[in-house]
Design a protein around this nucleic acid. Sequence first.
DNA 1: TCGCCAAACTGGTCTATACCAGATGAGCGA
DNA 2: TCGCTCATCTGGTATAGACCAGTTTGGCGA
Lengths: 242, 242
Amino acid sequence: MPERDHSAAIGPIYLRVRDHIADQIEQGLLQPNSRLPSERVLAESNNTTRVTARLALAQLEAEGRIYRSNRRGWFVSPPRLVYNPTEDYSFSENVMAQGRTPATETLEVTPTEVTAWLASKTGLAEGDSLVRLRRRRQVDGRPVLVENIYLNARRLPGIERFDFNRSLWKLLREHYGLELVRKQIEMFPTALIDPQAEALGVTAGTAGLYVTRCSRDQDGCFVEFDEEFWLHDTLSIQVEVG
Amino acid sequence: MPERDHSAAIGPIYLRVRDHIADQIEQGLLQPNSRLPSERVLAESNNTTRVTARLALAQLEAEGRIYRSNRRGWFVSPPRLVYNPTEDYSFSENVMAQGRTPATETLEVTPTEVTAWLASKTGLAEGDSLVRLRRRRQVDGRPVLVENIYLNARRLPGIERFDFNRSLWKLLREHYGLELVRKQIEMFPTALIDPQAEALGVTAGTAGLYVTRCSRDQDGCFVEFDEEFWLHDTLSIQVEVG
DNA sequence: TCGCCAAACTGGTCTATACCAGATGAGCGA
DNA sequence: TCGCTCATCTGGTATAGACCAGTTTGGCGA
C-alpha cells in the first residue's frame, strides 16, 4: 500500500476534509459499506460548501477509499478482492474463499459474428460465428464488474443452451474437456462509460479497470475472448510468475 | 478498446462537451501532446461555465484521453506504452522499441532498513539492511512513473556505488550474474498522492496505477522489491501466459 | 544579443446558490 | 396487513462569479 504523508496540517480545504474522513475510516469509526454523512452535512460540518466537499469526496473515491451509489450516498469501500487473471478460476469460489458473498447475473446471450476488432484480438476471420454473453457479477450485493464474453461457436457446439450463472471455466472443462492455456491478457485503467456504467449503477465516468483475456485450447485454437469492466476500487490484481 | 456509444446527442452539457472534444481527438484535429484550448475558452465556446467545462475535461482525463500539466494546460494523451511487468526488461529498450524516447532520473539513493511493511512483502526480517533507490522515468519528455526500489544489500554487495540511470536488470545480470525469477506482482488503480504526485508534476489525486514487484534469484533469495506509481493513462499492461 | 522582469495567461481552489431526478421512508387508505 | 402516494432526502448538474499561484512570453534595458 502506498504510504500516506500524515504530517500535512495545512493546505487546501478539500485536502483537509479528505484527511479528516480518511482518518475516520482508518480508525474504524466508519466501517466498510457504511454510509458517509451527506454532502450537505459534510460541507456544513467542515464550514465549507458542497462543491468543496465534493472535491474531497472525489479524491477519496479516486484513491479507492469510498464509492458512491447513484443518488443514495457515499459508502466506505470494503477491502479489494484479490484477483489473478492468469488463472483459470471460478469467480464464485474465489470470492467465497475471501470470505465474501458472490452473485452472478446473466444479462444477455446472443449469437453474433466476429467484427474487425474481434478478428484482430482472436485471429479468427471476420464473420465467423460467436456466442456473446454478457454478465454482471457482485460481491456482497455490490456489482463490481460487467463482462462481455465471446465464445467460439464452432469450437463449442451447443454452448448457448447452458446456464451461464455458474462458472464458465468449469462448464468448459466438464462438458468440452477443455483446459484453457495460452492466454493473452491486457489491462489498463480507464473510466467506465455508458453501457457499462449503467449496468453497474454508477455515474458515467467512474474510474474502472478494463481487462481483456483471450484464451485458447491446448492446440492453440481460439476458445474465448473475455472483456471485463471492473470498478477500480474493488480489485487488486496479483500474479505470480517464475 | 471499450466501444463508445456514439449515438447520444442529448444528455448533460458536460457530456456533450466531452463528446465534442473526444471527436476532435479521434478525427486527428488534435494531435497527441498538443494543447487543448484553455478552460475559459472551452467554457465560452460551448456557452457554459468553467466549472462545467472542467467536468468535461475531468471525464476525458479519467478515460485517459487527455492529461494536464500543472498550470500549463490540458494535452492530448499519446498512445499507451505497452508494458509487461512479468518480464525482466529494460525500460529504455522497451520504450525505444515502441518508437518513443525514454529518460531516467535517479532521485535518491539511500541505505535503509526493512520495515514491518517490507518484511511482509519480502520475507526478510525487520531491520535487515536495504538500499533504497528512487527514480523517475519519462517517455517523450513526460514523466510517466516514479518508482521506489528496495535492494537486498547483503545479496548485492557494493550495489550503492553503481549508476542507476541505466537498466537495473542489466546491472544485476552483468555484475552479479543474476537472473531474476519467482516474481510476485500486485497492482491496482489508485490516486497518486503527495510524494509521488509532486515528483510527477501532477495535482494530488490524479489517477494512477500502483504496481509492486518482488523478485528473487534462482534460489528463492530475495533480491529486489519494486514499487511503481504510473500515471493511469500512460500504460497498457500486457501479459502472456501458458 | 542577452538576461531579466512584469504582464498576461494558465489551471487550482473556493463561495453561494439553484434546480433536477432518482431513492427512500412515513403514513394513509383499501 | 398490504400497497400506494407523496414529501423529503440524496447526489447530479449547472450558473456566475472570485482570488491565488505557478508558467509563459514579450519587451525593455544593459
